[in-house]
Simulated scan of single mutants.
Amino acid sequence: MTDHSSRLDALETRIAYQDQTIEELNATITAQWRQIDLLTRKLETMEQQVRSGVHIADPATEPPPPHY
C-alpha cells in the first residue's frame, strides 16, 4: 500500500509542477502576442506613411548629433 501512496504523491507533485509550467508558458505566449500585435500596428503605420509619400530620413545621410 505504501508503494501506491508514494506513486500517487509523486504524480501529484509532477502535475503541480506541470500546471505551474503551463501557466508560465501561457503568460509568455500572451505577452509575445501583445508585442507582435504592437509591432504589426507600427509596421502598418510605417507602410502607410511610405505609401503616402511621407519622407522618412535615412540615418546614413543625417548629420551626427551635437554630442559627437
Rank of each mutant, 00 (worst) to 15 (best):
L43Q: 13
L25Q: 12
E44V: 01
T13Q: 13
R14T: 15
I22D: 11
Q35H: 12
Q20V: 00
E24M: 09
V54A: 02
R14Y: 11
I15W: 13
D19M: 02
T61L: 10
H55N: 07
D3S: 03
R14L: 09
P64T: 07
N26L: 07
R7L: 09
T61Y: 11
L38F: 07
R7N: 13
D37A: 01
A60S: 09
E44K: 04
E62Y: 05
W33R: 02
D9C: 00
R34V: 05
E47D: 07
M1C: 06
V50A: 10
M46V: 08
T40V: 02
L11R: 04
Y17R: 05
T30L: 02
L8N: 11
W33C: 01
D19F: 00
M46Y: 09
Y17G: 00
E44G: 01
Y68G: 05
M1F: 10
A60R: 14
R7Y: 14
I56T: 10
T13I: 10
T13D: 09
E12Y: 01
L11K: 05
T61S: 14
I15G: 01
T45W: 06
H67I: 03
T30E: 14
E47K: 06
V50L: 09
R7D: 12
V50E: 15
E47H: 13
R51E: 14
A31L: 09
V50G: 00
T2H: 01
R41K: 02
A27Y: 09
D37S: 02
T2L: 08
T28H: 09
W33F: 06
P64S: 04
E44C: 00
E62F: 08
I56A: 03
E24R: 11
R51N: 11
E12I: 03
E23M: 03
S5T: 14
L39E: 10
I22R: 03
P64Y: 14
P65W: 13
T13M: 12
E47L: 07
V50I: 15
E12T: 01
T28I: 06
R14S: 13
L25W: 08
A57H: 14
Q20D: 12
R7Q: 15
R14W: 07
A60E: 12
L39G: 01
E24D: 15
S5D: 03
Y17C: 01
E12D: 12
T40P: 02
D9I: 00
I56G: 04
T30N: 11
I56R: 02
V50N: 01
A27V: 00
